[in-house]
């Protein structure tokens, strides 16, 4: 395929950054207004005292809300809607939660190790009732490490698109087409990193993050199946249908 021109890369960066901001769920200005308010001790305890299944359901609802914004982001990526339906579904099933984890660094307060959740900023202890402390710790560590890269919105947008358009997902029917899209997106990501004068180590660090995202998502699936083994009815009747469709 012909080499991609600078103009085309600029255009791609523009489109993907615009889509990212249109579908990012929380604008930076909104977050500033929230003045990074943390939960008070009694609020933390009310989450910790929730029944395990109630906390799981609340988190499933929040994750599903975030995923719906990621689906809208994907639909706006040049070329995504030209893929066959099967591949659009495969990429979203495998990648939407990964992009939610990437986006988490936008609503993460590294100083206090807290993430925006259910109206305020929550530390790992808020999620204790889930019974997944090890996974929660890893998710917070991931958010903190991604925050330390201080990615701009357009870098975050391109990295999110790069993660979503992973050509190595199983069950892809037109793998070559996805590969071409992912390569163009990677070039656009490199382009924006150079334009922003980021040292070239950042791209390699981002590539390493991809492996961590995979492990976080497979651990989420393991935790879900362990939870569902104990509370099958709760998942069937009280979890968001989209969550079940993606992770069922």
């Amino acid at each position: 395929s012909p080499p991609v021109s600078m103009a085309e890369l600029d255009h791609l960066v523009q489109i993907i950054s615009k889509s990212h901001l249109e579908t990012c769920q929380y604008l930076r200005e909104e977050l500033q207004q929230m003045s990074w308010q943390s939960f008070l001790q009694d609020e933390v305890e009310s989450y910790q005292n929730k029944p395990r299944e109630a906390m799981w359901q609340l988190c499933a609802v929040k994750i599903t809300e975030a995923i719906q914004y990621v689906v809208e982001f994907a639909k706006r990526i040049d070329g995504f809607m030209d893929l066959c339906q099967n591949d659009q579904i495969v990429l979203l099933k495998a990648g939407s939660l990964e992009v939610v984890f990437v986006r988490m660094c936008r609503v993460f307060d590294s100083q206090n190790n807290a993430v925006y959740f259910d109206g305020k900023f929550a530390g790992p202890d808020v999620f204790r009732a889930l019974g997944c402390d090890d996974l929660i710790t890893s998710v917070f560590d991931f958010a903190k490490s991604l925050c330390s890269l201080h990615l701009t919105e357009d870098e975050l947008a391109l990295f999110s698109a790069f993660v979503l358009l992973s050509a190595d997902r199983s069950w892809l029917q037109e793998k070559l087409q996805v590969e071409k899209l992912q390569q163009k997106t990677q070039l656009a990501l490199q382009h924006v990193l150079q334009k922003n004068h980021r040292e070239d180590g950042v791209l390699n660090k981002l590539r390493c993050k991809v492996a961590v995202l995979r492990s976080l998502c497979s651990r989420h699936t393991e935790k879900l199946s362990a939870f569902r083994a104990v509370y099958p009815d709760i998942v069937r009747t009280h979890f968001p249908p989209l969550y079940k469709e993606l992770f069922g």
């Binding site: 719906q68 689906v71 809208e72 639909k75 706006r76 809607m81 339906q85 659009q88 579904i89 979203l92 099933k93 249908p241 989209l242 469709e245 993606l246």
Partner: peptide
Amino acid sequence: KHKILHQLLQNSTS
């Protein structure tokens, strides 16, 4: 199968 994802993908990106 995946009827919700199909539905979301069909909805126009208004």
